[in-house]
Write a protein that binds this DNA or RNA. Structure first.
Length: 460
RNA sequence: GGUGGGUUGGCCGAGAGGCGAGGCAACGGACUGCAAAUCCGUCUACACGGGUUCAAAUCCCGUACCCACCUCCA
């Protein structure tokens, strides 16, 4: 079976046929770095990381571009509220995002371009659009430049909407727009309310980029006028992706062949909006769960399915994942084997991670049943590698590894004496004494279990 | 008004005309001095009302409820 994926534009699962054999160009809309990343934000990071890994597994030479939007209205508003420069806020949140990705073993993309670093490319594209008659400088002297949606007959094709069916933007300032649905390519500098540092020179006066233009410009720069896959969250379909496609194609660039959109994580049935507070920020969640457990929770759901976040569900997922880890520990295998065909089929079917995870557990069970778990453990490792969930991956060590080791050997020394005593009691069939010692250790939060190779302890 | 998605067992979460996904929890059994871990088994679900079909969670029609997007949200 070849790799198939659901294309939002055609609303069907299609065979993946790259523009160039053996190569895959992937552009994903990253985040606007304006607040601490929460669980919902990193979902797309994890989802597209799995895509990237799978494409690589399939042998593609992948160029993966994931941008960062480091200038926009919200960044300006928030930084003003916090009394610090916008670039300070954006950079701080960018670093926070990097930490979150690292904690979840989201591999860095090939390149992570930032909007502010690509103003010349945007200006070039905007000028081209004006030349072609698809954009115009606002006549009200605001310095804005708008895309003329009426000039582009296939506007709305990505989201299958007709211009006249769209709700006129009541909240947006119509300013110098010819049609209320025209969107900003360039935003003139508002001297009275915006810092000069948030403006760049352009043929239309100082200003800053509109939201959508950056992605068209950067995708074009790093992936060329046509590339394979464009991804992002469902909310970006409209207007962001619709506009990206319109302005790119209006400039004569074919743009993306496939569109992939990941679904939301909701809390209490509601969109996990940035205004809901910070209880589910990555640093907060990682106080209670390991990164690998959170990643497993995110990978176990299909990328196009809503996930209703709950601590109970995350807890259950973590328990389930530990089952896999325990199996690997017991097997003591470190060499990855081959992927089971059922796993490959699941992944090829639009990244069917839920079915893939089911295969994972099937193999764990078979391995637990078998006399020799080695071949099964090898398969499990191979599957975990593809999903970015291999516990042995150094990415999970974080900065705590060394201290954990020291702690472990200290506890080991303390527990060893007690276990020794317990062994003597057991030899003498003094079960009461043996159980008392085990209880005593458990009081300290350490679980003792007897295995064929002797007792083992683990932190509860 | 337009566009898209959803409603599955105690819980989470797949599937998309016939064959019990998987996980968590619970219960029973095996193993164990007792446990733990592991294995085996049990719990046979698809919002509601119609319809099509030999056969519907899956297709069609209708209803209810939920969510998202409609010009700077992952």
């Amino acid at each position: 079976m070849t790799f198939r994926l659901y294309d939002t534009a055609t609303r069907e699962v299609r065979d993946f046929v790259p523009l160039q054999e053996g190569r895959a160009g992937l552009y994903v809309c990253g985040l606007t770095v304006q607040s601490e990343p929460h669980v919902g934000h990193v979902r797309s990071g994890v989802n597209f990381d799995v895509l990237q890994r799978w494409l690589r597994h399939l042998g593609y030479d992948v160029t993966f571009i994931r941008n960062v939007t480091d200038i926009d209205d919200k960044i300006l508003t928030k930084s003003a509220e916090q009394g610090r420069p916008w670039f300070n806020l954006a950079y701080a949140m960018h670093r926070e995002l990097d930490r979150a990705y690292a904690a979840l073993n989201v591999a860095p993309p090939t390149y992570e371009p930032a909007a502010t670093g690509h103003v010349p490319e945007m200006v070039e594209l905007i000028a081209d659009l004006i030349d072609r008659g698809h954009a115009y400088a606002a006549e009200d002297g605001s310095g804005d430049v708008y895309f003329d949606v009426r000039s582009w007959s296939s506007y709305g094709e990505l989201t299958h909407q007709g211009i006249d069916d769209m709700e006129p933007a009541t909240d947006a300032d119509p300013r110098g727009k010819r049609d209320p649905r025209d969107f900003a390519l360039w935003k003139g500098w508002k001297q009275e309310s915006e810092p000069e540092t948030a403006s760049w020179p352009s043929p239309w006066g100082r200003g800053r980029p509109g939201w959508h233009i950056e992605c068209s410009a950067m995708a074009g720069k790093y992936l060329g006028p046509a590339f394979d896959i464009h991804g992002g969250g469902v909310d970006l379909r409209f207007p962001h992706h619709e506009n990206e496609q319109a302005q790119s194609r209006a400039a004569g660039r074919p743009f993306a062949s496939y569109w992939m959109h990941n679904a939301w994580i909701t809390t209490a049935g509601e969109k996990m909006s940035k205004s809901l507070g910070n209880s589910l920020t990555i640093p907060n969640v990682l106080e209670d769960y390991r990164g690998i457990e959170l990643r497993y929770y995110l990978v176990a759901a299909h990328y196009r399915s809503h996930v209703e976040f709950s601590h109970q569900a995350l807890e259950e997922a973590a328990v389930g994942f530990r089952r896999i880890e325990l199996f690997l520990e017991r097997a003591g295998v470190t060499e990855a084997g081959d992927l089971p065909q059922a796993f490959v089929d699941a992944m090829n079917d639009d990244l069917g991670t839920p079915a893939a995870v089911a295969v994972l557990f099937d193999v764990v069970r078979e391995g637990n049943r078998a006399d020799d778990a080695t071949p099964y453990a090898g398969q499990v490792l191979a599957m975990l590698d593809v999903l970015g969930l291999n516990p042995a991956d150094p990415a999970w060590a974080g900065g705590r590894g060394q201290q954990d080791d020291k702690l472990k050997s200290a506890v080991d020394a303390l527990v060893a004496g007690l276990l020794d005593e317990r062994a003597k009691a057991r030899d003498a069939k003094d079960w009461a004494r043996a159980d008392a010692i085990r209880d005593q250790i458990k009081q300290a939060g350490i679980e003792v279990e007897d295995t064929p190779t002797g007792p083992k302890w683990s932190i509860d």
